[in-house]
């Protein structure tokens, strides 16, 4: 079986749309956010996801429903939940093997931003798949932070406004974990790309990604990658598992090429939008410049 591709990035870094694109390559299978890196066993993972409610669990439920029954109905999602609960003792590697067996000879494309919250999670992926490929997707800290706060506001009824939460620190922590992992990876096993760059010119960068992964970069494959909306996980799921990807992506998964071509990167200079009067911290500026943001 081929080694998987893990797209690693902080939350709100275009992982849904770019993971959806790469996952539609004919030789790949794009997973929703399965978050399997959070534990050594399925039970550990499920427990770790409990506080996130269906935001964290939807992806795995939808995937198992799709793989087991070819459909993502509410009944299928409920049966997937029961399947999980009976297999809490399964090691994470066994769960991945079960998924791979169902998918067949395709490259699994995993994009679970929660994996970057802890270095242990990232190392677990590397331990299970020593030869996996890791694609580090970056997004400007300003737009990442704004997007994070907007999503929290939309899905917490404004509750996020009362919580002491700084998306800049979330961005920094995730990036540091990713870079820490990268130091353990072999030359060529880890690659980084600015999400803004890829989305602004997918015809330039998708063939490069294919070449890196050893996948076909013929016209038909690239065309398939330009249609993430054809993924089984590019729409709102059943009531008990509605998510599994960015909610905005689920509501509007098709690429708007004209809009993508207009993507620009904001400046690192000036006040942080959510902390008026303050600039980005030095560690954030340092990493952002290292990633190519000005």
């Amino acid at each position: 079986m081929p080694d998987p591709l893990f797209i690693i990035a902080p939350p709100r870094s275009f992982t849904s749309v770019i993971g959806g694109m790469i996952g539609q390559h004919p030789q790949a299978y794009g997973l929703p956010e399965v978050n399997l890196a959070l534990g050594d066993t399925l039970g550990e993972t499920w427990t770790a996801l409990a506080p996130s409610l269906n935001m964290g669990t939807s992806g795995l439920l939808r995937l198992l429903a799709e793989l087991h029954e070819g459909a993502q109905s509410e009944d299928a999602a409920i049966r997937a939940r029961h399947w999980i609960q009976r297999r809490f003792h399964w090691p994470t590697a066994k769960v991945f093997a079960h998924i791979q067996e169902a998918v067949g000879d395709k490259v699994l494309v995993d994009k679970s931003p929660r994996s970057t919250m802890r270095i242990d999670s990232l190392r677990r992926l590397h331990r299970i798949f020593p030869a996996a490929s890791f694609l580090h997707l970056t997004r400007h800290p300003r737009s990442t932070g704004k997007s994070t706060l907007e999503l929290m506001k939309a899905y917490s009824g404004g509750g996020a406004q009362r919580i002491e939460f700084d998306p800049e620190q979330l961005w920094l922590r995730s990036q540091n974990h990713i870079l820490e992992l990268s130091r353990d990876l072999a030359l060529g096993q880890y690659m980084r790309i600015k999400g803004e760059m890829l989305l602004a010119d997918p015809m330039l960068y998708l063939p490069q990604v294919c070449d890196w992964l050893g996948l076909s970069s013929d016209a038909a494959s690239i065309e398939a990658m330009l249609h993430p909306e054809t993924s089984a996980f590019a729409s709102v799921g059943p009531p008990s598992a509605p998510f599994g990807n960015d909610p905005n992506f689920l509501n509007s998964p098709a690429l708007d090429m004209a809009r993508l071509a207009r993507i620009t990167e904001p400046s690192l200079q000036g006040d942080v939008d959510w902390r008026p009067g303050e600039a980005f911290s030095k560690p954030v500026l340092r990493l952002a410049r290292q990633f190519g943001y000005g």
Partner: peptide, 12 residues
């Protein structure tokens, strides 16, 4: 460092 660039994929 291998990387994606506007000038194509660069590997050492």
């Amino acid at each position: 460092e291998p990387r994606f660039t506007p000038d194509g994929l660069k590997v050492p």
